[in-house]
């Protein structure tokens, strides 16, 4: 959020020029600028330092590369094994985004259905909760027994993990529309569809996006967990399979390289979700606004 809001934040309707400002205001502006730079510079510096420390610890303690590889070695493995790892990454990404897409569309549709009829919500919400609270790792073996296609099994697992936050957040959002606005819609004789389209869906947007942000990370976790359970090698194997396979061979650098790719994917999903959220809410929602005090 922070990086995105810095780049895309609306300019507050205040003069930006320092002309005619008293020293306190100038100091405030300077502090704001310092914070803007520090916000991305500090994490980068800390990250670089910890990589250096990792390298030094390996050297000082003479840790062999088959226990903890040095960062350079991981990078070498990443480049050398890229043909294998890139295919695995692509497979994992397919499952992750496939599951995220189904979870988003399905969660949104179910939430709309739930708010249209109390009886549907009462009948089916417990099922959603059951799916959510049962650990995916416990259901996954069953799914792989009953579902022939490994791809479909992976998709189902990742979807089960990811859809609940979208469903529950969107349901909450759809029910959070301002009471007086609902009265107003009733007064002007709005149809059910109009109330949904012009009032409840926009009001649910921040909640939905909050759910989406969680679902993005969860769909990656779901995909990785499912891959571990499926454990299959071959054409459809993803990053988790690479980690498993490398661990059998004690190929530590490749394990680290695959892990790095998973982390980077997770971070990118997080950033993309934040960006989407910011772009959609920046003109009106409190969460995306910068305030001058």
């Amino acid at each position: 959020m922070t990086v995105a809001s810095e780049q895309h934040g609306l300019e507050a309707p205040m003069p930006n020029a320092t002309v005619g400002l008293d020293p306190a205001e100038v100091a405030k502006l300077r502090a704001a600028r310092r914070e803007r730079v520090g916000r991305w510079l500090l994490p980068v510096v800390i990250l670089a330092l910890s990589v250096v420390l990792w390298d030094r610890v390996c050297v000082w303690n003479e840790i062999p590369h088959y226990i903890v590889p040095r960062p350079g070695l991981v990078l070498e493995a990443l480049i050398a094994d890229w043909p294998i790892l890139s295919v695995a990454l692509l497979n994992t990404l397919k499952i992750t985004f496939g599951a995220l897409f189904i979870a988003t569309v399905g969660g949104l549709a179910l939430a709309v259905l739930f708010t249209q009829s109390k009886w549907i919500e009462i009948s089916f919400f417990p099922f959603a909760v059951i799916l959510q609270v049962t650990p995916i790792i416990a259901i996954a073996p069953l799914i792989f027994i009953y579902v022939d296609s490994v791809q479909a099994g992976l998709l189902i697992c990742a979807w089960i993990v990811a859809f609940f936050p979208v469903l529950s957040n969107t349901t909450l959002g759809l029910n959070s529309a301002d009471h007086n606005l609902r009265s107003l819609f009733a007064l002007y004789g709005a149809t059910r569809w109009q109330t949904l389209r012009y009032l409840r869906l926009p009001a649910a947007m921040p909640y939905f996006l909050g759910g989406l942000r969680i679902a993005g990370g969860l769909s990656l976790i779901g995909a990785i967990v499912a891959e571990f359970v499926a454990g299959s090698a071959g054409s459809g194997s993803g990053l988790a399979n690479q980690i498993l396979e490398a661990s059998y061979r004690l190929n530590m650098p490749r394990m680290f390289a695959a892990l790095l790719l998973i982390s980077v994917t997770g971070i990118l999903i997080f950033l993309v979700m934040n960006l989407i959220s910011h772009l959609l809410l920046r003109s009106w929602h409190e969460s995306a606004l910068k305030r001058e005090h």
């Binding site: 819609f185 002007y188 109009q194 012009y198």
Partner: peptide
């Protein structure tokens, strides 16, 4: 309360009763 839709512009808010028609 003013009871305006925060996601809509001033124009969008005033348009609402007509839009619903």
């Amino acid at each position: 309360e003013p009871t305006l839709m925060p996601w809509a512009t001033v124009f969008g808010n005033v348009w609402l009763p007509l839009r619903l028609k």
